[in-house]
Amino acid sequence: MVIVAIWEVISKLGFFPVFMFPPLFIPSEGGGVTVMSTLISGILSGEILSATGVTLVRLLIGFSIAIVLGLTFGFLIARYKIVDDTLGFFVTALQSIPSIVWFPLAIVWFGLGNAAILFIVAIGATWTMTVNSSAGFKNVPSIYIDAAKTLGSSGTHLLRTIILPASVPHIISGLRVAWAFAWRAIMAGELLGSAGGLGYLLDLGRSTQAMDLVLSIMILIGVIGTIIDNQVFLRMEKTVARKWGLKA
């Protein structure tokens, strides 16, 4: 609240032109722009909603690819020492490369567009997912595996019924971090060049010097991020914690 109030006051004082520092709620002059009015009219006109849709679809596709790859790599690293020594080491290095750094390469490989963006979203989330899932697989208590084996389990049945579920706490925290990385990656990717998506709208706002648009999208991004974190990941963590009796 305080921040909102200070923002309003600064915008009213007129140190900066309205386009640089637009008010949030109360227009500075009759019929002038505010961030809220832009956000609401953008949502009503469908412009912002369809951009959000485009972004979320890309995000989900890229994120799903990352989950599949991350789980596979993670399993191979945990299972085979040779993969751990080679790929495992490599992954740590790859993890420290911000995903947007891949963008020039992605443009050359896939052209400017959807595929390039999907690529950097996937690559941004894969390595974290790999690291977390391999930690999960490695830390499955051997007593569970031994118990399952003596009860007759082996092979893929053992993987599906014991190793995967036993790694779930690690995997969920991996998903959460990977999701955050994917968010960052897609914004960077869309800002730098594509048609459609929230990042593209941000760039449009910059080029038309409409900071009200930029700010309303920033608010939207924050809201979506919080909702997903709370509704999806926190809920998953809580369910698992309750089932396992880890904590309240």
Partner: peptide
């Protein structure tokens, strides 16, 4: 499964 083990900590699957 002709030789089943009861472990010290039970080894029950918590999930």
């Amino acid at each position: 499964n002709d030789r089943v083990v009861v472990f010290q900590e039970g080894g029950l699957f918590p999930w």
